[in-house]
Amino acid sequence: MDKSHGIRRKSRYKLQKPRREKGLSPITRAVQQFEIGDKVCVKIDPSVHKGAPHHKFHGRTADVVGRRGRAYILRARDGRALKEIIVLPEHLRPHA
């Protein structure tokens, strides 16, 4: 049988929550606001499947360059290339 090549392939351990954080995340994470030009950290919330970026961007720092509905358009580095990704706010944290 052929291997499945789905979007969450090879991410079994990367997209697991620690034992004490299991379950749904707080609603404040879904309603947080960012401004254009802000730096954000991409941290995928595995309890929310919708609006998550590809798991290769997990842990990366990106710049907010726009909005699309409730989601944000981010510019992140992938090697030497700059990629634009569309991410819901549940998967973002403000960069310190």
Rank of each mutant, 00 (worst) to 15 (best):
G37T: 04
C41Y: 02
P46G: 11
D45Y: 03
Q16F: 08
K43R: 15
K17H: 08
K10C: 11
V31D: 01
H54W: 12
I86Y: 01
L82Q: 14
H58N: 14
S11V: 04
G37Q: 05
R20N: 12
A30M: 11
D2W: 03
V31I: 15
H58C: 04
V64K: 09
L74H: 09
R20V: 02
D2P: 07
V48P: 00
G59L: 10
I73C: 07
R77M: 07
G6W: 13
L88D: 02
V42R: 07
K50H: 11
P46H: 12
E84M: 12
E90G: 03
K43T: 06
V64E: 09
E21P: 02
R75Q: 15
F34Y: 15
H49E: 09
R75E: 15
L74C: 11
P46T: 13
K3P: 03
K50I: 11
L92C: 04
A76T: 12
A62W: 05
V64R: 08
P89E: 05
P46N: 10
R93N: 02
K56M: 09
R70G: 05
T61A: 14
R8A: 03
L74S: 10
G6M: 08
E21T: 14
D38G: 09
S47L: 00
S11W: 01
E90K: 01
V48M: 06
R75A: 14
F57P: 02
K10F: 11
Q32I: 14
E84R: 15
I27E: 14
V40Q: 08
V40G: 13
E35N: 05
V87Y: 05
A81L: 10
L15Y: 09
S11L: 05
R75H: 08
G6E: 14
R68I: 10
G79N: 05
V31P: 00
K56S: 11
L15H: 09
I7T: 13
R29H: 12
L88K: 04
V48A: 02
K50D: 10
G6Q: 08
K39A: 08
H49R: 06
C41N: 07
S25R: 12
D38P: 07
A96Y: 01
E90S: 03
G37S: 09
G59K: 07
R8M: 03
L74E: 04
D78I: 00
R68A: 10
V40T: 12
M1K: 02
H58P: 00
V42E: 07
K3G: 02
G69S: 08
I36L: 04
H54T: 09
E84P: 00
